[in-house]
Simulated assay, not measured.
Amino acid sequence: MQDWEILIIKHGTRATRRSDVYMNYAFYGEQDDDFTVDYYLWVLRSGDQVIHVDTGYSALGAAKRGREVLIDPLEALSRIGLNAGDGHPLVVTHAHYDHIGNVGAFTASQVYIGRRELEFWTSDVATRPLFAHFGDQAEVADLLDAQRDGRVRPIDGNATIAPGVELIELGGHTPGQLVVRVRTTLGPVILAADAAHFQEELDRDMLFQSMTDLPQAYRALDWLRASDAAAIITGHDPCELDRFEPLTGALEGLAAIVAPLGSPAR
């Protein structure tokens, strides 16, 4: 049985308000307050095998939307000995700007993405204002370049892409939103990406401000809560690094490794 380690890398952050994060926040009857949104990418490793999960936002994508860059995602990968051009597989959980901002640098990678996701972001609907803020047609063009190169592997439903790594299409946040179920020494761990942005979203059924399918977004949360996961890692919660073993060295303070607490971190 093959186990994987998961590296959680924080590359950006944003200070905002709760009312700017949760959909129809006034419906909850709660006082507004400050809120922090963090931005991550993930790396799966097992021996010499590496799988990238999402690529963070680009400097241009961050500047367009006033997001703070803590470290360039490609620089973060370089600091742990990885180069985007090395050809390791890349999973795109969904095609928002903060998850595909550097896809163009992964010039030799097989790219896994939900078929519905790619179809949606190449449709006429993708440029409508409520979607376009989170999308970026220049970055979608990088996905299309990979498709023309024969490197895109569309996912319908579920797919095992390596022993112990399963992609599961949940939808909701976006039409083809994927989560990644990973076999680890802790047990199965789910990278929820933006099927659940925050632990509070899971705990309290409070949906993020942007959803393409509200009923399915709730069903995605139900699916996550009913899963057999030893841990669910959300896409933007500031607590995620604190829940796992800090990564020492070049990414100290910006990364954690999903391993039993107290185990050696690299």
Rank of each mutant, 00 (worst) to 15 (best):
H52A: 02
D54M: 05
D54W: 00
D54T: 13
T55V: 04
T55N: 04
G56S: 05
Y57R: 05
S58R: 01
A59Q: 11
A59L: 10
G61F: 09
A63F: 03
R65G: 04
R65E: 11
R65N: 13
R65C: 09
G66T: 11
G66N: 14
G66L: 03
R67F: 13
L70R: 08
I71Y: 11
I71N: 10
D72H: 05
P73N: 15
L74W: 07
E75A: 08
E75T: 14
S78W: 09
S78D: 10
R79E: 13
R79F: 12
R79D: 09
I80C: 14
I80R: 15
G81D: 13
L82E: 12
N83V: 05
A84E: 10
A84C: 04
A84D: 13
G85I: 01
G87T: 00
G87D: 04
P89L: 04
P89C: 07
L90H: 08
V92F: 03
T93C: 09
T93V: 06
T93P: 01
H94A: 03
A95W: 04
H96P: 01
D98H: 11
D98E: 05
H99N: 12
H99Y: 04
G101Y: 01
G101E: 03
N102E: 07
N102W: 01
V103M: 03
V103G: 04
F106I: 10
A108E: 10
A108G: 09
S109P: 14
S109I: 12
V111R: 14
I113P: 08
G114E: 03
G114F: 00
E117V: 08
L118Y: 00
L118D: 02
W121T: 10
W121S: 04
S123Q: 07
D124P: 15
V125R: 10
A126M: 15
A126F: 07
A126W: 15
A126Y: 12
T127F: 02
P129W: 00
P129F: 07
P129N: 06
P129V: 07
P129L: 09
L130H: 08
F131N: 13
A132R: 14
H133A: 11
F134D: 01
F134G: 06
F134V: 02
G135S: 12
D136V: 01
D136G: 14
D136W: 11
Q137L: 05
Q137H: 05
A138M: 08
E139I: 03
E139R: 15
E139F: 08
D142C: 02
D142I: 02
D145V: 15
Q147P: 03
R148V: 15
R148K: 14
D149E: 13
G150I: 12
V152K: 04
P154K: 01
I155L: 10
I155K: 12
I155M: 10
G157R: 03
N158G: 07
A159V: 10
A159K: 05
T160Q: 15
T160V: 15
I161N: 02
I161W: 05
A162K: 01
A162I: 06
P163K: 02
G164A: 05
V165A: 06
E166V: 06
E166S: 09
E166K: 12
E166Q: 13
E166T: 14
I168F: 04
I168P: 03
I168K: 07
I168Q: 11
I168D: 09
I168W: 08
E169L: 11
G171T: 15
H173W: 05
H173A: 01
T174W: 05
T174V: 13
P175S: 11
G176Y: 07
